[in-house]
């Protein structure tokens, strides 16, 4: 009984994802088809990688909603420079730009102690403006042969190579979070920022670094997104924050910080995407899908917080 309870507590998200997956495979004839599975795994990596980056920030009890614009701007630069300087250099350039953009947001959060929500909201506006300005408000289409080749690689005929990039990033992040001094420090900062300061940790440096990591991850997510869209624009990933934050929260990373992990986020991304895929299998209209997304988010937040706080008077 104790073991069952422990499993239910620690592994409920992966179990739920597995349950939905098996249920859909049994009940819907189109779900377990190669094309649908490919679509399912192809839809995950871009936002998934950005979600792993956000996990670092949320571990510290901070927030970032500028990742959608970071994805847009870095992928615009990536697509614009792809033909002139080659695949690898332009990828490195885009990743570097992602780091810089993350560093700008993080600088104001870490050193001015401004509210991360407000800062990332304003940087989001500015980054989107830069992306729209450099592209002249038109989409940048580029069918570069390397991009096309990457998009064609499939493992087991159904899983795109980018999905493995996502898993690799998540595993690497989990390693950093749990096995290194740096990662443990993040948990301390998220748990209680004053205690971390009194312990002599470089709180500001750590806060700044997680934003750089997030910028890197968002840029990588943007590049991965290009392998299936072949077109970047300043309005790319406008719904990024609204989609990514729920994935991280559902995975089990606490909004207040100090609790969570990259593998948890991986399963949160899996669960949410399987649910969305299932919803479209049932022919549910896209507007209603949004309603269901909202209700799922509300149910998870409210049940979580109600159970946590129900003994408090206020």
């Amino acid at each position: 009984m104790e073991i069952v309870r422990k499993i239910a507590k620690d592994y409920r998200i992966p179990l739920l994802a597995l349950l939905v997956f098996v249920f859909m495979s049994l009940t819907n004839p189109y779900f377990f088809k190669q094309a649908n599975l490919f679509g399912l795994f192809d839809s995950m990596p871009a936002y998934g990688i950005a979600a792993v980056g956000l996990t670092f920030i949320m571990l510290c009890g901070q927030l970032d909603i500028s990742m959608g614009s970071v994805m847009a701007l870095s992928s615009c630069v990536f697509m614009m420079t792809l033909n002139s300087i080659g695949f690898i250099p332009s990828m490195l350039l885009a990743l570097a730009i992602g780091c810089v953009l993350g560093a700008v947001t993080g600088f104001f959060v870490a050193f001015f102690r401004l509210s991360p929500f407000i800062v990332s909201m304003t940087t989001q506006i500015a980054y989107k403006g830069i992306a729209l300005t450099i592209t002249n408000s038109t989409p940048v289409v580029n069918m570069h042969p390397v991009l096309v080749k990457i998009s064609e690689i499939k493992v087991f005929g159904a899983i795109p190579i980018t999905f493995f990039v996502f898993v690799l990033v998540a595993l690497l992040a989990e390693f950093v979070m749990t096995k290194t001094q740096y990662g443990r420090n993040l948990f301390v900062i998220g748990g209680n920022i004053n205690v971390a300061d009194n312990l002599g940790l470089n709180v500001r440096g750590h806060l700044w670094s997680v934003y750089v990591i997030q910028g890197f991850c968002a840029a990588l997510g943007g590049i991965v997104m290009m392998t299936r869209m072949f077109s970047a624009s300043g309005n790319l990933a406008l719904d990024g924050p609204l989609s990514i934050i729920p994935m991280v929260i559902v995975g089990g990373t606490a909004f207040a910080g100090g609790k969570g992990g990259a593998i948890k986020t991986l399963f949160g991304v899996l669960l949410m995407n399987i649910i969305f895929n299932a919803l479209s299998m049932f022919n549910i209209y896209v507007n209603i899908q949004q309603l269901i997304k909202g209700v799922i988010l509300l149910m998870i937040i409210v049940s979580d917080k109600y159970l946590e706080n129900r003994h408090n008077k206020v």
Binding site: T122, T123, Q124, I125, A126, Y127, K128, G129, I130, L132, T133, S137, G234
Partner: peptide, 8 residues
């Protein structure tokens, strides 16, 4: 479009 940048 440039207004976004200035505003931010």
């Amino acid at each position: 479009v440039v207004q976004y940048i200035v505003k931010g």
